[in-house]
C-alpha cells in the first residue's frame, strides 16, 4: 500500500469508515511508516475537537420561510415576460407584405 493512498484516506480510516480488509492494510502500513503515522497523529489531534466545535444549535430567525418565498415571488415577477409569438408572426407578415408591395406587385402590374 502506497503512502499517497494512506494519506488521502486517513480521515476515512480514523472515522472507521474503511472496508475492514482495507483498514487492516492501512493499520499495517501505519505500524512501520513513520511519515504516515505522523500524519495520522496530526489529523487525529484535531479531528474530534473540530467536529465538536462545529456542531451548532442555532436556529434560523422566524420569518425565514416567508422571506425566501417573497424573494422568489419578486424574482418571478421581475423576470421579463416571454415575447408574445403573435406579435412576431404579425411582424414577419408585415415584412412579407411590404416586400411584395415594393418589389413584386409593380413588376406584375407592368406585365398588364
Amino acid at each position: 500500500m502506497r503512502c499517497g493512498y494512506v494519506q488521502r484516506h486517513i480521515v476515512v480510516f480514523l472515522e472507521n469508515q474503511m472496508p475492514p480488509d482495507v483498514a487492516e492494510k492501512i493499520k499495517s502500513h501505519l505500524s512501520w511508516c513513520k511519515h504516515c503515522s505522523d500524519v495520522a497523529k496530526q489529523v487525529e489531534e484535531v479531528r474530534q475537537p473540530v467536529k465538536d466545535s462545529m456542531g451548532v444549535d442555532i436556529e434560523p430567525p422566524p420569518g425565514m420561510v416567508q422571506s425566501v418565498m417573497a424573494r422568489i415571488e419578486n424574482m418571478d415577477q421581475a423576470a421579463p415576460a416571454p415575447p408574445d409569438r403573435r406579435y412576431a408572426f404579425i411582424a414577419v407578415l408585415a415584412i412579407i407584405v411590404l416586400f411584395l408591395a415594393i418589389f413584386v406587385v409593380p413588376k406584375i402590374l407592368k406585365l398588364y
Binding site: 488521502r8 480521515v11 476515512v12 469508515q17 496530526q42 473540530v50 467536529k51 462545529m54 456542531g55
Partner: peptide
C-alpha cells in the same frame, strides 16, 4: 462536521470522488 455526513455521502454532496472528499477534509483539518 455539521451535517455529520459519512465520506460516501460527503462525496455525493460535493460531487467528487470519495478520495477527493476525504483529502479536502484532511487538508482542512491540517
Amino acid at each position: 462536521a455539521v451535517e455529520q455526513l459519512t465520506f460516501k455521502e460527503l462525496a455525493d454532496a460535493l460531487g467528487v470522488p470519495l478520495s477527493t472528499a476525504a483529502q479536502r477534509v484532511r487538508r482542512g483539518l491540517m
